[in-house]
Design a binder for these strands. Structure first.
Lengths: 190, 190
DNA sequence: TTTGTACCCGAACAAGCGTTCGTACTTAAT
DNA sequence: ATTAAGTACGAACGCTTGTTCGGGTACAAA
């Protein structure tokens, strides 16, 4: 129906599979049953596709952060909510997430700087929630930066393992990852 | 002194900064004060460099795994030892680790398959240690695959943040990351 | 029926890529 | 002094890349 959207969707898959650099416009054209030159009736340039994928997901995460910040909840509940949102996004839209996580470096200026600024902002707000939890004694007294990056990074495998040896259904997987990150690997009281 | 080694070292840095695909042989040549054609007095082809970086690190990790497997220790101590090794490697050689983690996909066959097989083997042995810990009740009853990927992934930010806002010295940072992964974010008994 | 708009294509462009080739120059071994 | 090996270079090759251009077709509005 909407050819433009079809191009964007197929491009995301292609960027995920081969990486932005190795994905050629002729590859992409073939997937949407066009010739390369015809793509330019729908888009201005290749990088525009990357920009849109990254920008859309940045908005997606920023809006989630706003909702969480407005919650009446403890830092622990807020962190749990953010982790849950990240995990669900990774499972529902693994293609875009991969591009967002791994291919943003191919953005040209000024979009690259904009992207990084927006990511820094998101991380800063996440860090504030963590800092609050540490100050309250809800969290272990660990450097908030270390916590921030370890949590975010500890999740970054989900979108790669879409159909790999994880025999779980959504809720079970989400619960276990969150439990592991919040409560740790070691079993307590022993 | 040894020009070949200089090329390999500079190539690793270049691959890290721009990605394998975007790093051209002319870029690399300039960095070692040569012209592109002169590189081929020292190496056979571009991908050969990538092969060596990946293969060397694969050996590095496999040998560490062998030492850990031979330890007389609990699963918890073995996991702690492996995490410690990963973290130290990421901090001591962030350049190679980045290439090893992010650029291996550009390996051509049959090296790509070899690399993946070796990685699967490593993960399988790591998984066995985790499984032992779960069976003994030392670890939480979480799917060993989820534990494996979350632990390995939770560390994968260190090599990117070489000179970023982590004001820690080595031991402190290593201790805190391991504490966070093994004991969790939440403070106990409250 | 004419005009306009949206879409598609083949051909071609300039630029960049990894790599090869022929040829020098330097250095050490014979 | 002669040979051989090692290293460096400029030029060029064949290929792929993103993108442009001019011309074509389809279809709806005027």
């Amino acid at each position: 129906m909407n050819k433009k959207q079809e191009i964007y969707d197929e491009a995301a898959k292609l960027f995920q599979e081969k990486g932005y650099g190795a994905a050629s416009m002729r590859d992409l054209a073939e997937r949407v049953h066009l010739k390369a030159s015809s793509l330019y009736s729908h888009i201005r340039k290749k990088e525009e596709i990357l920009e849109k994928i990254c920008a859309d997901l940045a908005v997606w995460f920023t809006e989630a952060m706003e909702r969480v910040e407005e919650m009446e909840a403890t830092p622990r509940e807020k962190v749990r909510e953010l982790l849950s949102f990240h995990i669900r996004t990774a499972m529902d839209d693994p293609t875009s997430i991969t591009v967002f996580s791994d291919e943003w470096k191919h953005l040209e200026e000024p979009y690259r700087s904009q992207f990084l600024a927006s990511r820094r902002d998101y991380e800063e707000r996440f860090r504030r929630i963590i800092q609050a939890g540490v100050s309250k004694g809800e969290f272990r007294p660990i450097d908030p930066n270390i916590i921030l990056y370890t949590l975010l990074s500890g999740i970054r495998w989900l979108h790669h393992k879409q159909r790999l040896p994880i025999p779980q259904h959504r809720e079970g997987l989400e619960m276990q990852v969150i439990e592991l990150l919040l409560e740790g690997l070691s079993k307590k009281n022993q």
